[in-house]
Amino acid sequence: MLSLENKIPPPLLTLFTAAAMWWLSLFTSPVELTSTVKIFSVLSFIFVGALFALLGIISFRRAKTTINPLKPETTSSLVTTGIYQFTRNPMYLALVFFLLAWASYLASVWAITLIFLFMMYMQYFQIAPEEKALARLFNGEFTQYKKRVRTWL
């Protein structure tokens, strides 16, 4: 299973998950939502996701460090300010919100189960290896940060 660590770019995994959600929605009954509720939920999730992504990218740019999730060992500084005071993974959280928007659009409760699988995959094959690299690079500083700030929210 180590061969899966940091191998699939998170945006690509998100697209794969979205396609699987669509496929699953073809075989399940949609939840009856008014168009107002559907539009509001889709736009709300997109807005929150975009906000998390933007704030995460801004924090990384200010710290002049890489945003490449496949090479965490190239990180030049530990970012603990901005949105990183509230979540250790705002850009991955953004992807979850985008998937929630897609599930809302599909009006599929079953599609939401795939979001949980996405999060589990991200936790074990993306976040855990990244955090190992950060612990090696920033030792005690990362350990203290990890105690203060949650992985997701």
Rank of each mutant, 00 (worst) to 15 (best):
F47M: 09
K38C: 11
K7I: 11
S108N: 08
R62A: 10
Q126G: 05
T87G: 00
K147C: 08
Y124Q: 12
K146T: 01
A107N: 09
T74A: 11
S35I: 09
S44Q: 06
L26E: 08
A128E: 03
F98R: 00
S29W: 10
T87C: 00
L106G: 03
G56N: 02
A18I: 03
A50V: 11
M1A: 09
P72H: 05
S29G: 08
L137N: 06
A103T: 06
M21Y: 04
L54Q: 12
F116K: 08
Q144S: 14
M119G: 04
G56E: 05
P90C: 01
P30F: 07
F86E: 01
A135C: 11
P72D: 05
L95R: 05
V48D: 02
V79P: 01
F125C: 07
T14L: 15
Y92P: 00
L114P: 01
R61H: 13
I112M: 12
T14M: 13
L99V: 04
R150F: 00
S35L: 13
W152R: 00
E73K: 10
L24A: 14
V79I: 05
T143I: 13
I58T: 13
V79W: 02
A135M: 08
T34Q: 09
S59A: 15
I127A: 03
S76Q: 15
N6Y: 07
T81F: 10
K7A: 14
P129M: 07
F98W: 12
E73N: 10
T14E: 02
E73R: 04
L134C: 06
I57V: 15
F97Q: 00
K146V: 03
A135L: 13
N6G: 06
F16K: 04
A19S: 10
V109R: 11
E131P: 05
L153R: 00
V149S: 01
F16C: 14
K7E: 10
T113F: 14
R62S: 11
A53V: 10
R150V: 00
S29Q: 12
L51A: 09
K64D: 15
T81G: 15
A50R: 11
L100W: 03
F60K: 03
W22Q: 04
Q85V: 04
A63M: 12
I67M: 14
K7S: 12
N68K: 12
A19L: 14
P69L: 10
S76K: 15
F125P: 04
F47R: 09
P129E: 06
W23I: 09
F40R: 09
L55Y: 07
I46R: 04
F40S: 14
L26R: 11
L93F: 06
L95C: 09
V42I: 12
A135N: 10
L15K: 06
Q126Y: 03
I127L: 09
Y124N: 11
L13R: 03
M120A: 14
M21S: 06
L106C: 06
T81W: 13
L117E: 08
K7Y: 13
M120T: 13
M91L: 08
P72L: 04
L26G: 03
G140W: 10
Q126R: 03
R148W: 07
S29D: 08
E5Y: 05
A133W: 02
L70W: 07
L99A: 06
L13M: 15
F97R: 00
L13Y: 09
G56I: 03
A133I: 01
L4Y: 12
N139S: 14
L153C: 01
A107I: 05
Q126V: 10
T151M: 02
T113W: 14
L12F: 13
A135T: 12
N68L: 10
M119D: 01
